[in-house]
């Protein structure tokens, strides 16, 4: 696989990351090296194999639906970079 700069920019946008020109070149170079390396997996025939998606043996661990004290409001807002009395604050979304 050889990802190009356009692909890198598209992926960066999906990941909500920005790279400047210099970082872009370096990131692209290392990503392409890693992608080439992981393509080794194509040497294995997996046409008859189901993907493994769950690692525990636990199925539907249920509990009683009891009301418990959740994280109190003030503790929830404790680490907010910007907040008012009740809410997290962010830059304006609608003009």
């Amino acid at each position: 696989m050889n990802a190009d700069k356009e692909t890198l920019r598209r992926i960066a946008h999906l990941a909500r990351l920005d790279f400047d020109e210099k970082e872009e070149g370096k990131m692209l170079d290392s990503l392409n090296k890693i992608l080439t390396w992981v393509e080794k997996l194509n040497e294995i025939d997996t046409s008859q194999v189901e993907p493994l998606t769950h690692m525990t043996d636990e199925v539907n661990v249920l509990r009683d639906d009891e009301v418990k004290e959740p994280l109190p409001h003030d503790r929830g807002l404790l680490n907010a970079p910007d907040k008012d009395q009740d809410y997290f604050r962010v830059p304006k979304v609608l003009e």
Binding site: V38, L41, N42, I44, T46, V49, E50, P51, L52, T53
Partner: peptide, 13 residues
């Protein structure tokens, strides 16, 4: 990539 790796993971396991 992703599904392929999940399949290989099953074989490794």
């Amino acid at each position: 990539y992703y599904t392929k790796a999940q399949k290989v993971r099953r074989l490794i396991k």
